[in-house]
């Protein structure tokens, strides 16, 4: 089973036409609204309406949760990282209890998950994955990118993290240990990247702007000045 390169998950392939970069913003929705809803689209509406009719929850709860999902972006995680870089007390509390640390900054957890923050150091590099599915620190990073949910990353991150990181352009020296943490339904991870040199005088806000989603997954470092991609 499993031809190399083909995998279990093909989210987005139909719509991406192979260009995977974020920021190509065609308004796909318009096309789909005009079309007849597809089978799974209909199934979603049917299941939702049936459960609302049976009063298991209200339509407003779905609307509210869509707003919650839209409000969660990697900017929240970046704020947490920047605060940890400038506030030693906060850093310690965050490493002790990731969820409480985030809540201190007003980031609410809308689910029952715990958060463990993993600190990168000159000796240790952390990488997060969910081998079984797509568990991800959604309250602080939003929804995961497709590649995080696809087979190549999930299968390989746990046994050849150095090769995986090289595919993201990240070379970790051999004397740095790589720790891969496998997420579960109840326990999620967030990487606290190393603060890049040359940023000593930067404000917390400017530091936050350097921190990317991928750095908090652990596939790239935080860079300053940013290299041209």
């Amino acid at each position: 089973m499993g031809t190399v390169g083909d995998d279990n998950d093909h989210d987005g392939h139909d719509h991406d036409h192979g260009h995977g970069d974020a920021g190509h913003g065609h308004p796909h929705e318009e096309i789909f609204i005009a079309d007849a809803p597809g089978y799974y689209d209909l199934m979603e509406t049917a299941v939702r309406e049936l459960l609302i009719e049976r009063r298991l929850f209200g339509a407003d709860e779905i609307r509210r949760q869509i707003e919650v999902l839209d409000s969660r972006t990697p900017a929240l995680g970046a704020k947490v990282v920047a605060r940890a870089w400038v506030d030693e007390g906060f850093r310690r509390r965050l490493l002790e209890d990731g969820r409480k640390g985030c809540e201190e900054l007003g980031i609410t957890f809308y689910d029952d998950t715990q958060l463990i923050v993993l600190e990168n150091t000159p000796k240790v590099h952390n990488l997060i994955v969910c081998t079984l599915c797509s568990c991800y620190p959604r309250p602080v990073l939003g929804l995961p990118p497709d590649w995080y949910k696809l087979k190549p990353y999930r299968a390989r991150a746990v046994y050849e993290p150095r090769a995986v990181l090289e595919e993201f352009g990240t070379r970790i020296p051999d004397d740095v240990e790589i720790i891969v943490s496998d997420s579960t339904a109840m326990v999620r991870y967030l990487v606290l990247p190393m603060r890049p040199p040359g940023t000593e005088t930067m404000s917390e806000e400017d530091l936050g702007a350097l921190v990317t989603r991928d750095a908090m997954i652990g596939v790239i470092p935080v860079e300053y000045p940013k290299e041209a991609a």
Binding site: G2, V4, G5, D6, D7, N8, D11, G12, H13, H15, D16, G20, D21, A22, G25, H28, E29, F32, I33, P37, G38, Y40, D41, E44, T45, V129, T131, L132, C133, L143, P145, D146, W147, L150, K151, P152, Y153, R154, A155, R156, A157, V158, Y159, V164, E167, F168, D182
Partner: peptide, 21 residues
């Protein structure tokens, strides 16, 4: 679902905006 450790291909950095549904 238990694919951790399986051989697999190169990571393609695909992403897409979720469709409304």
């Amino acid at each position: 679902n238990d694919i951790g450790g399986d051989a697999s291909g190169k990571i393609e950095r695909v992403e897409h905006e979720l469709l409304p549904w």
